[in-house]
Structures are given as C-alpha cells and as structure tokens.
Design a binder for these strands. Structure first.
Lengths: 120, 120
DNA sequence: TCTTCATATGAATAACTGTTCATATGTTCA
DNA sequence: TGAACATATGAACAGTTATTCATATGAAGA
C-alpha cells in the first residue's frame, strides 16, 4: 500500500509539480477520507437505503421492516446492526419488540442530496 | 428475490398493518432507491473519495492524480472510468494528457454533508 | 512513418459484503 | 418456570469489487 511506485510514474513533462504539491497540502488526513468512504459505503446498499427511507416515515420494529421490504428478519437485523454501528439509527425496546428510528437529521440531508443528483 | 416470505414473518401482534401500509405508499419506486444506492456506492471507496477531493482543488491529469495518491496509473484510470460513468467527473484532452475535473457542484455538496456527519 | 509517452482496457486474483440457515438471547404471559 | 415470540448472532456461501499485470490505443514530435 505504501510502497514507492516511482517506476510507474510518468515523466516530469506530465507531473505538474507545483500543483501536485499545493493540492497535497490541502488534502484532509487519510483517516478522515477513510471514514468518509466508510460512511458512504453504508448508504451504498439498496436494503439499507430502503430501511432508512422507511424510518423517514415512521419508527418501526424489525419485523415490520422485514415485511415491508419483503425480506427475511435476519437480513434486516444484520443491516440494522450496520446502521446502528454507524450511528445512523437508534433503537428502543418495547416489550418483545425493538423499535428502530433515525439517529439524526443528517441522514435525511445526505439522502436528499443524493436524490437531487439522481433526479437532475 | 421476490418470493413470498410469509412463513418467516412475525405474527399479527407485531405487524402494525396500518403503519406498514401507509409507509409502503410513501416509498419511492424501487428503481429510484436502487439508483440512489448505486450513487452512494461510488462515494463509498477511499480511492474514489480521494480522487474527488483532489479534483476539488484542481483539474488534473491521470498521471498527477496517481502520483498524488501514490497509486498505480491503471488503478486510477479504472476508478476514473467509474466516476465518469456516474457523471461525477468529466474530462478533456490536452495533447497527450487527459485532464479530469468535477462534473458539477452536487459532488461537493454530497461530500460536504458526509463530512459534517463524521465531524460531529 | 516510427518512436515515445499518457491513458485505457481486459483478464486474473484477492478481499470484501449481503443473504441465508441454524441457533442463541431475552422478553412476556400463563 | 416454561412456552411463545421478536430479535440477534455466527458461520457459510455466492456474488461483487479494487488492484495489478500485460497490453492496446491514440496523440505528439522527429
């Protein structure tokens, strides 16, 4: 990953050194860019997007989500865990059921922005 | 995929039928949700996020991007193709080089929103 | 036209991811 | 406490994806 790839690089004719240097300075930390990709990765799955969309409308138990999406309970539960770990959803227990809901409004914002791009 | 999973569903005690029905009506088309996930999937990779971030700062040729990210030219080229197909970047030819740039400002908006969520 | 260089592309491989199946956990109610 | 039910979890499998290697394409200059 961190090996020097000098041999693969193009000649100095191509490399605009000043530009490369100044852009390098402006780049956020690798770790931040990694986290950012991880976040978007979570939105990058149809099932998870659907779950989030469902939760836009109403808090809901695992079972209802599974029925609504016509998928197995286990699949939904696994994905809810992913969403939970990313702090995109939260949950509360109500008797035997676990009710999930959106963690905050960033989720809405992010999804709506994506929607705009698609709809243009 | 579309098989009936009735047997896996929970009892009527759990299924809040009115809620499920009303949410179902509000859901966007499957195809739209699919496209949305596809869009986010593209942002869900560190290399592509880095490329986009680089292009925030300056239009740049493939070779410069590769050097900046310390990666092989081929890897960058492959990812640029993905970004191009998603209409997130565009390109122009300048002599032997191909200069890439951001396609529009939605890219910035989407990434910035993601950044906000991470930074909170 | 021939060479050089920047980029693109196809195939192969390794790593990752989502769903399913089987089963465990934890709550409610009799 | 035991039965019934909603949810969680681990392992396995199938499908997907990013990178690399080798090579092709296409532009520029001699």
């Amino acid at each position: 990953m961190n090996q020097d790839r000098y041999s693969e690089r193009c000649q100095e004719v191509c490399v605009h050194e000043e530009v490369v240097n100044s852009v390098t300075e402006e780049m956020p930390e690798d770790e931040i860019l990694y986290d950012l990709a991880e976040l978007f990765k979570i939105f990058g799955d149809t099932t998870r997007i659907k779950i989030l969309y469902v939760l836009f409308e109403s808090d809901m138990c695992v079972c209802d989500i599974a029925q609504l999406l016509n998928m197995g309970q286990s699949a939904i539960s696994h994905q809810l865990r992913v969403l939970k770990q990313a702090q995109l959803v939260k949950f509360r227990r109500e008797g035997k059921q676990v009710i999930y809901s959106l963690a905050d409004d960033h989720v809405r914002t992010i999804i709506n922005n994506g929607m705009e791009h698609i709809m243009e």
